[in-house]
Computed example of a mutant assay.
Amino acid sequence: MKNELFSLSVLTITILCILVILLKYLIIRKTLDLRNREKIENYKETYNPHIYRMLTEGTYSRKLKPETGLQQKAFEELLSRYIKVIEGVEEKERLSELASMYLSDYYRKRLNSIKWSTRMNTLYHIEDFHMISLLDDVYLLTKKKQLSHEELVHSLRILALFKFESILNLLTTKYRHLTEYDYRHILLRLHEHQFDQFDQLVLYFHKAELSLQKAVLEVISIKRELTYLPFIENIISSYLGEIKLRALKAVAQIGYVKNIDPYLDLLYSTKWEERLVAAKLVGSLKEEKALARLIELLHDQAWWVRSQAGQSISQFANGKDVLRKVLETSKDAFAKDMAWEWLHKGV
């Protein structure tokens, strides 16, 4: 019994000691964090006037020499604040130049950190500050075997943003099995900054993986690029299924076609998705020849088609009158409900 009590006492004292040590560690850690934060804020006060003059006037200062980790952190936080508010092209170029001058070595080391969060945060800053000086370092990162999926996609996005000459080859050979979501985020940067390579990707479309094809069509849809209309219409006439539907959605987003007749036929498609997209297109074009069919589609079996038909009708100059007539004369409860809904939308 005495031995058991003694063992229990020893165990209790041991646990208490561990808790005391842990508490002391947390207090010390918190104290150090507060001190470091205070130092960072002081550095920010010192650096801010010099950074402001550099961004607005292009005036350099010899006092601007962030060398320690805390100084570089302060410098980084200031640039992060400025990148959110500056709009001028010249000011953004100066900010990129500043980041390249004072943070390149710092970020180079952080890209090799064993901590995933450190590497990811560094990639975000490299992208935000448009640090083209680190393009090769980002490319080397994609070659690492232990690279996470998030790091890979973000790195490829940066390479697209920085006009990396082999980005198209990477997307169509080495990284052919990314998701549509991944490709879309990369291609949006490619479209913004490398029209030639995006055009080459459009030419490669027929050989591309399904997810990459979907992403190409999605980007064209998001950007509403009228120049790609012939390409989109070729896809509609030569593909079936999901790809054809994506192309139709892109046309509907663009909101323009040279010849409406083929799309009028789709209003009678056996596939409700195609009827829906065609209804959206003729509504955006306010195509009078389609109005009678849109009224019929208010009676469609698919709720989404009925809803789109109601929305499209409401876009016509006399759309409210048409919907009111359906509400008063139709014997279809679903059509009447949809007509009522779009009559009162936004009221």
Rank of each mutant, 00 (worst) to 15 (best):
V10S: 06
P66V: 00
W303Y: 14
A278K: 01
K30V: 00
K207D: 13
S80C: 06
L285W: 10
K345N: 04
Y25H: 12
E180D: 09
Q197L: 11
K214T: 02
P49L: 13
F6N: 13
S312D: 11
T173D: 03
D199C: 07
L229K: 14
I28T: 07
Y139P: 04
A333R: 13
V282P: 04
E87V: 15
S307P: 00
L23G: 05
M338C: 03
A99Q: 14
H191F: 13
A208E: 10
A74L: 07
F162I: 12
E97K: 08
N48D: 06
V305G: 02
K144F: 02
Y256V: 08
L156W: 08
R94T: 07
Y47C: 13
Q146T: 14
H299F: 00
A335Q: 05
D199F: 11
G310I: 06
F129Q: 09
G283D: 11
I83W: 07
K65W: 06
V347S: 14
C17V: 06
F6H: 09
E288H: 03
H299G: 12
S312T: 08
D182A: 11
L78A: 07
E87S: 15
T179G: 14
L267W: 01
L19C: 04
I27Y: 05
S61T: 11
L103V: 10
R293S: 10
D321V: 04
E242N: 03
W304C: 06
E328N: 11
E242L: 05
T329H: 10
S148H: 12
L297C: 02
S284C: 03
E90Q: 09
K289D: 14
Y25S: 06
K144Q: 15
K345A: 10
K63E: 06
M1E: 12
A74C: 10
H299S: 12
L22G: 07
H149Q: 13
I13E: 06
L171T: 05
E218P: 00
N259R: 10
E87T: 15
G310P: 01
G319K: 04
L16S: 09
A339V: 09
C17P: 02
D261T: 08
E218C: 11
V216S: 02
K320Y: 10
G319W: 01
S80I: 11
K223W: 09
D300H: 05
I236L: 02
